[in-house]
């Protein structure tokens, strides 16, 4: 007898199989294709592609951009989540909506806005040029574009959790004599650490993998303004497929590590909640 609120065993397995097949073909197969293409001629050409000076420069640049953008958006996201989740003030909902706005903006537009501000024909372009400062087609532009596309990640993961937690714990800390900083460090931060980590992981994955926005501001100068995703494109357009897929495989690996870490963090959250 099948309980009335589930499906017969056979149908159940059929659905599970269908879902697995779907995800396998639609999501996993592309991933497999990347690694296969990268290793088409074996390991040595892949290593060669990855240890190429331009590839190394791209890896270094990607790390540098993420190392600047992620902390900035983490601090901003913390501040934003703190004031939205802990206080009531007019315009709170609007503030949250504005923080999430970059998610609904095309990556290319996210790059474009910086060109409009700082490009040769942008608002501040001539002023900057007169002083020999370059933002577009240089590292600052890459950082700004990355900041824009990764802007909401941390705030967005923190706000729902902090709203649910409420402010009682911080109030209790205040009655026990804790200063604002003590309360933040000893009560708030430990309470949100897993969600914060999860937000930072996602922010970092996007920062390292962003393509559209940085492509607009980069100028594609090899060894100088090429991040890893941009390097992939250049190699691909030059028909250096092994090289392109080798760098792509490295990025895919980063995605897999992110997903794994996120799964671990979520298990940590679950344990933290059950403990």
């Amino acid at each position: 007898m099948t309980p009335s609120t589930t499906e017969p065993r056979g149908l159940r397995w059929l659905l599970i199989l269908l879902a697995a097949l779907l995800l396998g073909v639609f999501l996993l197969l592309p991933l497999a294709a990347v690694f296969t293409e990268a290793l088409r001629r074996g390991w040595p050409p892949m290593w060669q592609a990855l240890s190429d000076p331009d590839a190394l420069a791209a890896i270094r640049l990607t790390l540098l951009v993420a190392a600047i953008a992620v902390p900035v958006n983490t601090l901003g996201g913390l501040a934003g989540a703190w004031c939205i989740a802990r206080y009531r003030f007019p315009g709170r909902a609007l503030l949250l909506a504005l923080i999430e706005l970059p998610f609904s903006v095309s990556p290319v537009v996210s790059g474009l806005v910086w060109v409009l501000l700082f490009g040769a024909h942008g608002w501040f372009g001539p002023w900057l040029e007169a002083r020999g400062l370059q933002i577009i087609f240089a590292v600052p532009g890459l950082v700004l574009a990355t900041l824009f596309v990764t802007f909401p990640f941390v705030a967005r993961t923190l706000v729902p959790l902090m709203q649910e937690q409420g402010r009682e714990a911080e109030e209790a800390a205040a009655t026990l004599g804790a200063s604002g900083w003590q309360s933040f460090r000893r009560v708030t931060l430990p309470g949100i650490r897993w969600a914060l980590l999860s937000g930072v992981l996602l922010c970092n994955a996007r920062a390292m993998g962003e393509f559209g926005a940085v492509s607009v501001v980069s100028g594609h100068i090899r060894g100088e303004t090429n991040t890893m995703p941009l390097h992939v494109e250049i190699l691909y357009n030059e028909y250096q497929f092994v090289g392109a897929f080798a760098v792509a495989a490295l990025l895919a690996l980063l995605a897999l590590v992110t997903l794994g870490a996120k799964a671990l963090v979520e298990r940590g959250t679950a344990r933290g909640a059950a403990a």
Binding site: P30, P107, P229, Y236, A248, L259
Partner: peptide, 14 residues
Amino acid sequence: DLPFALPTAVAGLA
């Protein structure tokens, strides 16, 4: 979550 985490250029290439 793979499409969330995978860089878009990698997805495009793949």
